[in-house]
């Protein structure tokens, strides 16, 4: 009964997260952008824009220019989390595929990176007066929630190991509307509930920033397109 409740919650909240994100994207895209406001010097080609966005999304270029401590902490946390997420793909296979083995073996280091990164970000939010001034309770809680998820997951791996194939069946079941039981274990339930909470807040909070950056006109617009057209026609050739 409890398993089914968790399973159905998982299904519904995963849907909520995906549909909520899509809804937000649709809101952004449907809002007109009457004047071009790229931050110049800006790329003149679409490929250039993709490159600019990739630099921001994968390397946090602007943050690197702005603040080294925040940049290091953010890189540690985001890449740690990405590594852990990839590791979780093991639950979508009945047998562990070879390419996932390094992710499983090294996930302890990824946890360490994510925890260190999150702690620095949390400390910075508390200690630096400027950042404290702009922080709301939710800003702290997002970091605490992520810490809870990562730490409870690590506890599962190290101290209260669960039957991964049963967890896999539960997750695959929840995503295919064929709900399966979850292995026993309070820590597993705690870990899962934290994740469900994350699913819930994701589409209605700042956690959408990773998606939003793609739709940011200052970064995704090209510099004066009519000029590019003029250049192609060949005048001012130098």
């Amino acid at each position: 009964m409890f398993d089914t409740l968790l399973g159905v919650s998982f299904t519904l909240l995963a849907l909520w997260a995906v549909l909520g994100t899509l809804y937000r994207i649709v809101t952004w895209v449907r809002t007109p952008s009457p004047l071009p406001i790229p931050l110049t010097p800006a790329p003149r080609t679409r490929l250039g824009v993709v490159g600019r966005l990739c630099l921001e999304i994968f390397l946090f270029r602007a943050l690197a220019r702005a603040n080294t401590v925040t940049w290091v902490a953010s890189i540690l946390f985001h890449y740690g989390l990405l590594f852990i997420l990839i590791m979780h793909m093991r639950f979508f296979f009945a047998y562990l595929p070879g390419w996932l083995i390094p992710f499983v073996v090294w996930s302890g280091w990824a946890v360490a990176a994510a925890v260190v990164g999150l702690c620095i970000l949390l400390l910075r939010r508390i200690i630096v007066d400027r950042v404290r001034y702009i922080s709301s309770p939710s800003d702290y809680l997002h970091l605490v929630l992520l810490l809870c998820i990562v730490l409870s997951g690590y506890a599962l791996k190290r101290h209260w190991p669960v039957n991964t194939s049963t967890v896999g069946e539960f997750l695959r079941g929840a995503l295919s509307f064929q709900w399966q039981p979850l292995p026993d274990g309070a820590v597993l339930v705690i870990h899962l509930v934290f994740v469900l909470l994350l699913f819930f807040v994701f589409p209605i909070s700042k956690l959408l920033h990773g998606v939003g950056i793609v739709f940011t006109p200052t970064l995704n617009q090209r510099e004066n397109v009519s000029v590019s057209v003029a250049t192609k026609k060949g005048e001012h050739s130098s």
């Binding site: 702005a66 603040n67 925040t70 630096v128 702009i134 700042k206």
Partner: peptide, 10 residues
């Protein structure tokens, strides 16, 4: 929607 209050601009 997208500000994370990271403080880079402060």
């Amino acid at each position: 929607d997208t500000c994370t209050k990271c403080g880079a601009c402060t």
